[in-house]
Nucleic acid binder design. Structure first.
Ligand SMILES: [Zn+2]
Length: 282
DNA sequence: CGCCTGCCCTGCAGGC
DNA sequence: TGCCTGCAGGGCAGGC
């Protein structure tokens, strides 16, 4: 799930807790099996009685701000998601709960479930510390920014480290454009009708602009198509339904291209899958 | 500093 | 039925 658009939708869901006071941030029993959470309950107890002021997003990161200096940097990894659930207990059908947050004057709890455990939920002493954290500091312009930052995008593509690479290999680089993940990488290239194997330096200016616009369209479409499920706060409960339906190429190897009927193929770039239509994408 | 390779984890589908 | 392999929407630490 979690690319920029999914993280943005998570943020929108979690906003209901802005202004709420923390009763407790509880590391689950299960979480104690893993080093990154083990023995850390105590340091999360400093949040007891504090109020969430704002939950913001930078790329695929969520930054939890409170009414005191400490900040929590949260990343969903591959499988992390927040579940907003009625009552004080974690429902039994949630298999991998790592964190549970209880709030004052709030009947619902927030549960961070993360099967593969690649997620992060880390405390920083100050907001500035988070901003100075290199992966945050180096993030490129956000792909959901309106208007899409075409100039910054084009400039970064001119950098030596990018110019000689295949375009399909660098779109995942969060320092280029923040928020693109492996699904929307393929989908953006498909919409732009650009072959993922094309070398960046061989892309014409109009193709780069088309790609930028396509990234913007694809990411926003993803947010919009998740909108209805957000309303009911069930974004993260496993029903991803609508978000997947409009995919043109991702995970469609062997199926026919909707546009030309040619077979969609899968290749591997930097150990990640890329899907595309050889006929439509030049 | 930048770049590259491992590594962190569980679950699922498909082949045997 | 079980066991094995490859694959999965991401990023980090450590070596050079
Ligand atoms: Zn096609």
């Amino acid at each position: 799930m979690p690319e920029g658009p999914e993280v943005e939708c998570t943020r929108l869901s979690l906003r209901r807790f802005e202004g709420k006071k923390i009763v407790k941030i509880e590391l689950t029993k299960l979480s104690q099996k893993y080093k990154k959470y083990e023995g850390k309950q105590k340091i999360f107890d400093v949040f007891i009685g504090k109020t969430i002021t704002e939950i913001e997003r930078k790329g695929k990161f969520l930054i939890w701000n409170f009414d005191f200096s400490k900040v929590i940097l949260n990343h969903l990894g591959m499988s992390g998601h927040w579940i907003i659930s009625e009552g004080a207990d974690v429902p039994t059908h949630i298999i991998h709960p790592k964190i549970k947050i209880l709030f004052k004057n709030e009947s619902k709890i927030a549960i961070f479930e993360d099967a593969r455990n690649f997620g992060q939920f880390r405390i920083y002493d100050t907001y500035q510390d988070v901003i100075n954290y290199l992966p945050i500091k180096k993030l490129g312009s956000d792909g959901l920014k309106v208007p899409f930052p075409q100039e910054a995008f084009a400039e970064k593509l001119k950098l030596k480290k990018n110019a000689n690479k295949e375009i399909g290999r660098i779109l995942l680089d969060q320092t280029l454009i923040a928020g693109i993940g492996n699904i929307y990488k393929s989908e953006s290239l498909a919409l732009a009708k650009i072959n993922p194997l094309r070398l960046v330096k061989k892309l014409k200016p109009e193709e780069i602009e088309r790609l930028g616009s396509s990234i913007s369209i694809v990411l926003h479409k993803a947010v919009d198509s998740m909108g209805s499920s957000i309303q009911s706060f069930r974004t993260s409960t496993g029903e991803e339904g609508s978000a997947q339906k409009w995919h043109k190429v991702y995970a469609k190897a062997g199926f026919d291209c909707d546009s030309c009927g040619n077979e969609i193929i899968r290749i591997v770039q930097d150990k990640r899958s890329t899907f595309y239509c050889e006929k439509c994408q030049v």
